[in-house]
Design a protein around this nucleic acid. Sequence first.
DNA 1: CATTAGCACTCGAGCAGATGGAGTGCTAAC
DNA 2: GTTAGCACTCCATCTGCTCGAGTGCTAATG
Lengths: 343, 343
Amino acid sequence: MLTERQLLILQVIIDDFIESAQPVGSRAISKKGDIAFSSATIRNVMADLEEMGFLEKTHSSSGRIPSEKGYRYYVDHLVSPQVTEGDKKLINNVIQDGFFEFEQVVQKSAQILSDITNYTSIILGPEVFETKLKQLQILTLSSQTAVAILVTNTGHVEHRSFSIPEEISASDLEKMVNILNDRLHGVPIVRLPEKLNTEIVDLMNKYITDFEKSYDYLKAAFFNDNPVKLYFGGKTNILMQPEFKDIDKIRSFYSMMEKEDEIANLLKDTTNGIKVRIGHENKVDAIKDLSLITATYQLNEEQMGTIALLGPTRMEYKRVVNLLNTLSHEMSDALYMWYKNNE
Amino acid sequence: MLTERQLLILQVIIDDFIESAQPVGSRAISKKGDIAFSSATIRNVMADLEEMGFLEKTHSSSGRIPSEKGYRYYVDHLVSPQVTEGDKKLINNVIQDGFFEFEQVVQKSAQILSDITNYTSIILGPEVFETKLKQLQILTLSSQTAVAILVTNTGHVEHRSFSIPEEISASDLEKMVNILNDRLHGVPIVRLPEKLNTEIVDLMNKYITDFEKSYDYLKAAFFNDNPVKLYFGGKTNILMQPEFKDIDKIRSFYSMMEKEDEIANLLKDTTNGIKVRIGHENKVDAIKDLSLITATYQLNEEQMGTIALLGPTRMEYKRVVNLLNTLSHEMSDALYMWYKNNE
DNA sequence: CATTAGCACTCGAGCAGATGGAGTGCTAAC
DNA sequence: GTTAGCACTCCATCTGCTCGAGTGCTAATG
């Protein structure tokens, strides 16, 4: 257990280091207004804290920097739930200002999150378990080409162009779509493939000659690609952080950022609520010297997506944690309202 | 005018430097198989070439590097139209392999272009002067929300969600869409705003009460945002180039890459065919030490878009010029076929 | 007995000088 | 005209040095 004084010093050191990115010396601390001890005393405390594993030295006579354990303690015990009014306003603006389309809001949120923090934001989702098919439409553009448009009850629109196989006539196509619309309206998107594979196939074969071919086309068009969507904000913000001063680090960062599925997995692996992963607590090598803070947003009890911020371990945890907290709640609320309207 | 020998030496130096990124010395050249002169002779030639402005030294006793004038000469006189069979195949694959949707092809082209060159590719367009409205549809999701879907004859789909103003009834909305579809079918997209503002307004006012409001919504949804689209490939490739070894350069590069409208202007300002801009030939400061190669692709005589590659001035001009040439032709051909089908 | 002043010590950053290699320009010989 | 040879230049690298910031320890202090 830490004494009051150790706690205070630890907090001051971490706060200072988060701001300056420089090792913190005993003298500098003793000069701060709210510290009443001499530098020698502080040196003793620092030595204790180092022994306990909360602090580190970069070399034998340097000032101290927080260890990962130090950050962990800081996050767990010293981050007070202070809400910055300014930040809160910004978030409210994004969320409320014309909630037209969910993706827009997500995109904008990612943007603003990275803008005000100067870290890189990643938003995953939403995984729309409750989204239902509103309409499926196929529009022929020419004798050989057509575009299929799928609309959900949330206003999400997917579309694919495809070539019409020669064996299929326009009237067959029309018939097919009619049947599909009739049968699939209101079916949750996640259950579409299953539904298609069971009931629909039989039905279709009755009415449409050579159905298999066109069906394959349709299936390929909509159900093959990864439904998970990642939104990024401030991908280059990280360049401004002093810890990214050597190229190799930048390279490895960006090459990781390109592996979207890996990032998606990273963000999926989270419990509800806010989670802070510091340095080696991350399982992916490329970010073992960064911190990742994730928060989930949801609708009812159903998890829908994740908001995350990626920055140096020397992160403004206090601010960021509260920011994510606020944003995830706002998003959840907004989603709730949206769904209630579109039920 | 350059002598045969000067030409040869210049070519060898530039080729070597493009490959190695290191100043080229006289000894290294004399050792190459196809050079029959001693290093001393080559030194003399190099001195001449430097005097003429084609070469530079990084310091008084260094090897030579090409000047911008040198590259310019190289591009204008020494780039032979050699087509790499391998590259050509790659391009053909992208273009032909299921030309479903134009945007997909563009996206994929950008990707492959950057992959095989290791530079950053930018594709602008297409500016679809000939694109016509195929269908406009409004789908109500709830009593307050709706999604508008616009489909063109090229299979391009745009959509926007919006709130339905309280004054407007569902039937009015339906009426409006019917009229719009009737009147606007086949109208080129670029002429939509004009058409809307003249004929349609009067017509609508006759049939629909309080038309202005809903019309404003519709207009805002589709015609306010920038119609120019940029596709990037390999934004991070440039990090691998040895000239990007200091952070400030990386920073300025990425901050430029974020100004999409500036880049769009850069790419718009081009005549038909291939254009190489070397270093200071670029008007934008941030890329004054890079080279930008642009090629247009088109349909009939109408310019439609631009493909570009951005890399260090030390670029593989030979390869890249031919690559862009091939790709732009392939894209033009593909576009031509596509339009013919959808006429 | 906790706190603090004082001092010796350590380490890194930054600068000056030495060294060696790669490359040039010039001159004289072929 | 071409080339061998040589003096010269500059950079990159290494070494040694100093200086300042910071520590740990000890002894004095309240």
